[in-house]
């Protein structure tokens, strides 16, 4: 697997959610993802960026373009140094929410991507990696 592009975006305020939506959209257009694929990943990015800001107290997102055996993918890594998620299984259930949202952020985002990885440690932070491969 090769990384051909890499950029980090700071996530501190709610305006940064709009910014990452635009950024991810731009990258996906350049990578020639279909409109539905673009919409799914931009939506997932929006959900996860909001989690990072609201629950993680802010953090950063990393955008990575991957090439692997001739296929191209976009990977997004959301990281914060917040309180962490105490019960990962519970957090991935639909409707589970500690904030004011619908509780769809994690479970919903997982359905929108090809690969989803969630790591969290109490008082250390949370790291979520999502990947979408382009359908050729």
């Amino acid at each position: 697997m090769k990384i051909s592009h890499n950029e980090t975006i700071h996530l501190g305020a709610s305006e940064d959610i709009s910014y990452i939506r635009q950024k991810v959209r731009k990258w996906m257009v350049e990578l020639r993802f279909s409109l539905v694929e673009q919409t799914k990943i931009v939506t997932a990015a929006s959900e996860l960026a909001r989690n990072t800001i609201e629950h993680g107290g802010g953090g950063r997102a990393q955008l990575i373009v991957l090439t692997d055996n001739g296929r191209t993918g976009l990977q997004l890594i959301f990281e914060d140094n917040g309180p962490g998620i105490p019960d990962l299984e519970l957090a991935l259930e639909d409707g589970y929410s500690t904030g004011s949202g619908l509780g769809l952020g994690l479970s919903g985002s997982k359905r929108l991507v090809d690969e989803f990885d969630l790591k969290s440690k109490p008082d250390k932070g949370t790291c979520i990696t999502i990947t979408k491969w382009r359908l050729n």
Partner: peptide
């Protein structure tokens, strides 16, 4: 609502 948005929000669970 755009078709691509409709597909996405259903999958998201909205």
């Amino acid at each position: 609502i755009r078709p691509s948005v409709a597909i996405t929000i259903v999958e998201l669970g909205v």
